[in-house]
């Protein structure tokens, strides 16, 4: 790792100012992508701006956003924090499960939501949640739709120096995330998030292509018939997918269908369990 100037601002404004003044600045959140990259000398910022002292970027809260209750997660929330948060569990349980499956325990204890989302690794888990749940990405300058945010491999809509400060997740009716990990790195070879939301069924795919994307064909099929078998004949085009020594594009395309079906099966099971619960509550009320 080359040396750099280290900064530890306590406010968003201070951080942005330090970034702007730096010759080649980088924001540092959990550092679990940036530090390994710097150690391999693939990245050599002149200045590292450590965001961990910024209170405004921390915390997990429930906010009223118009008519809808939103789950608001500070960009610095660590994966473990999201995984174990009672608020997340009650509002967007899929996010808690997804965060609990990122990397390994040590990585989850340091890595952050904002770092992962802003880095936009094609095999990262969080982008599937952001896109699949139609989250809002709030920066120091604006609020972006998930659709606008992810541009390509390691490429987002964030401008130079723009700082992702929090992510706001609407509460889905139901959702599930299923991934097939790369046997070496444990990143997602493919990861599928399927959600029933206010504006319909959404399916987001990570790992398979240069950047997270929505699988329109799957969404359409599931809108017509939210069942595992609805996806039987749906195969996403392999031509758009990554092909490397770990998996061919064709295999990734196949896995997308399998993982999507498993996510749907999980949602159907959740629905059934909920229905059973409601039934039993009704039954117990009527019998008591």
């Amino acid at each position: 790792m080359y040396n750099f100037n280290y900064h530890r601002p306590t406010s968003i404004d201070e951080a942005v100012k330090q970034y702007d003044e730096a010759e080649d600045g980088q924001y540092l959140a959990g550092g679990h992508t940036l530090i390994p990259t710097m150690k391999q000398r693939l990245s050599a910022p002149t200045d590292l701006i450590d965001l961990s002292g910024i209170k405004a970027m921390q915390g997990i809260t429930r906010s009223d956003d118009g008519a809808e209750k939103m789950l608001q997660i500070g960009a610095l929330a660590r994966h473990e924090e999201v995984a174990s948060s009672p608020i997340v569990k009650s509002m967007v349980p899929v996010l808690s499960a997804l965060a609990g499956g990122i990397g390994d325990a040590q990585v989850r204890n340091r890595g952050t939501l904002g770092g992962s989302v802003a880095n936009c690794d094609p095999a990262a888990d969080y982008p599937a949640a952001v896109l699949g749940l139609n989250a809002q990405l709030v920066t120091n300058r604006r609020s972006l739709d998930a659709e606008q945010f992810f541009m390509g491999m390691f490429e987002t809509a964030l401008d130079e120096g723009e700082l992702l400060t929090s992510v706001h997740f609407p509460r889905p009716e139901a959702a599930a995330y299923v991934k097939f990990p790369n046997p070496a790195s444990r990143y997602a070879l493919v990861g599928l998030l399927v959600a029933k939301t206010n504006d319909g069924v959404r399916v987001a795919v990570t790992g398979a292509a240069p950047a997270v994307f929505r699988a329109a064909a799957m969404e359409a099929a599931l809108t017509d018939d939210f069942s595992v078998s609805a996806l039987d004949s749906i195969l996403l085009p392999a031509g758009d997918m990554n092909s490397d020594m770990h998996a061919s594009a064709e295999y990734r395309a196949h896995l997308c269908t399998v993982m999507a079906q498993r996510a749907v099966a999980a949602i159907v099971a959740q629905d059934q369990a909920r229905a059973r619960q409601v039934t039993s509550e009704v039954t117990s009320e009527s019998t008591s």
């Binding site: 530090i35 150690k39 450590d50 961990s52």
Partner: peptide, 22 residues
Amino acid sequence: CGSCTVHFDGRAVKACTLLVAQ
């Protein structure tokens, strides 16, 4: 590899991926 795992405020972390400054 995790060989460098230590506890940071009681939680396991990889010491190779933490700056002292942090």
